[in-house]
Computed example of a mutant assay.
Amino acid sequence: MQKIKVRKIGNSLGIILPKESGVTEGTELDYKKNGSIIELNLEDADKAHDRNLIEKSFEDFKYDKYYTEDQVAEKFAKYGWTK
């Protein structure tokens, strides 16, 4: 288990999460305290992030900016995308 230092931020306390946590600036996390255990839940933040990506991707259709299936297969083949 990795240790995280609690720091004073104004009149509050805060923690700095390591970059590897995948949490980005502005992300809102669900917080829950069970006895001496503090739980930070990313589930809703992940869903909101994914929803935002999907909505943003559909904006391109308004301007006829999209790829055909062949173009996607060619562009993303290195990531394992196939037709």
Score class of each variant (00 low, 15 high):
residue 1 M to V: 13
residue 3 K to M: 13
residue 3 K to E: 15
residue 4 I to W: 02
residue 5 K to C: 06
residue 5 K to V: 14
residue 6 V to H: 04
residue 6 V to R: 05
residue 6 V to P: 01
residue 7 R to P: 00
residue 8 K to D: 11
residue 8 K to H: 12
residue 9 I to G: 06
residue 10 G to V: 03
residue 13 L to R: 04
residue 13 L to Y: 15
residue 14 G to N: 04
residue 14 G to C: 05
residue 15 I to L: 12
residue 15 I to R: 02
residue 18 P to M: 07
residue 19 K to D: 12
residue 19 K to C: 05
residue 19 K to L: 14
residue 20 E to I: 11
residue 20 E to N: 12
residue 22 G to C: 14
residue 22 G to H: 07
residue 22 G to M: 11
residue 24 T to L: 13
residue 24 T to D: 08
residue 25 E to H: 07
residue 26 G to E: 06
residue 26 G to Q: 04
residue 26 G to M: 05
residue 26 G to D: 10
residue 28 E to R: 08
residue 29 L to R: 01
residue 30 D to I: 03
residue 31 Y to W: 09
residue 31 Y to K: 06
residue 33 K to A: 08
residue 33 K to V: 14
residue 34 N to R: 04
residue 34 N to T: 12
residue 35 G to K: 08
residue 36 S to T: 06
residue 37 I to P: 01
residue 38 I to N: 02
residue 38 I to D: 03
residue 39 E to C: 07
residue 39 E to I: 15
residue 39 E to Y: 10
residue 41 N to Y: 08
residue 41 N to P: 02
residue 42 L to T: 13
residue 43 E to L: 13
residue 44 D to F: 01
residue 46 D to M: 14
residue 46 D to T: 09
residue 47 K to C: 02
residue 47 K to Y: 08
residue 47 K to Q: 11
residue 48 A to Y: 01
residue 50 D to F: 04
residue 52 N to V: 05
residue 57 S to N: 05
residue 57 S to Y: 01
residue 57 S to C: 03
residue 58 F to N: 08
residue 58 F to T: 07
residue 60 D to E: 15
residue 60 D to V: 09
residue 63 Y to C: 04
residue 63 Y to F: 12
residue 63 Y to H: 12
residue 66 Y to P: 00
residue 66 Y to K: 08
residue 67 Y to H: 09
residue 67 Y to S: 10
residue 68 T to Q: 05
residue 70 D to H: 02
residue 70 D to F: 01
residue 73 A to F: 02
residue 75 K to V: 04
residue 76 F to L: 15
residue 76 F to N: 03
residue 77 A to S: 14
residue 77 A to Y: 01
residue 79 Y to K: 05
residue 82 T to N: 10
